[in-house]
Simulated assay, not measured.
Amino acid sequence: METLQHRFVEFIPEVLDEGILYITMEYRTAVHMCVCGCGNEVITPFSPTDWHLRFYGDSVSIYPSIGSWSFKCRSHYWITRNRIEHAESWNDREVQQGRDADKMNKKSFYDEKSQEPKFEKPGTKLNRKTKKWSLKSFFSFLGFK
């Protein structure tokens, strides 16, 4: 297979067509049949620490690469502007290093996220018990008096 056609859907269908990359923005996920033809479903969730989708209007790219290491086929490829770019297969050591790096990236991202300072604009009041802005505070935050 050399290309995938993208299709934006609300829900992923139960039966997938080969050659179609189903994308659901509501669930931040893309699903397609493995491009090697083995029949496995490949799921790529979108998040700051997983895959990213780039939409160009007439085509899409997903990055980083897709490595189907838990499948017998062990396919490895990129989806770039709807085209499949096959990549070298990884050995078991490389796969483990990649998984370890993913775990470290996730931990680092979420540890930093929990450490982010919470800034308040002067003159606004956040009700600390309910963590809600009053309507007056909200409009003040937007610059209205």
Rank of each mutant, 00 (worst) to 15 (best):
Y22I: 12
A30G: 14
I20A: 01
S65G: 11
K72A: 13
C73A: 08
E85T: 02
F71H: 10
P13T: 07
V9Q: 10
S47D: 07
Y77I: 03
V35P: 10
M33C: 15
I12D: 02
V60Y: 00
W78K: 12
H86A: 05
G67R: 04
P48M: 05
F55D: 12
D58S: 13
V9K: 13
Y56Q: 06
P64S: 12
V31N: 06
Y63H: 06
I43D: 11
G57T: 10
Y77H: 01
F55Q: 06
W78C: 08
S47Y: 06
E14A: 10
C36A: 06
G37H: 03
K72Y: 08
C36Q: 04
W69D: 07
W51K: 03
N82D: 14
G39R: 04
I79F: 04
I62M: 05
V60G: 00
H76A: 04
V60H: 00
I12F: 02
R74V: 02
V60K: 00
I20L: 01
V60Q: 00
I66S: 11
S59R: 03
W78M: 12
S70Y: 14
W90D: 09
E14Q: 04
K72S: 12
S89T: 11
I66F: 07
I23C: 01
V60E: 00
I66Y: 10
E26W: 05
W90V: 08
W90E: 10
S68H: 02
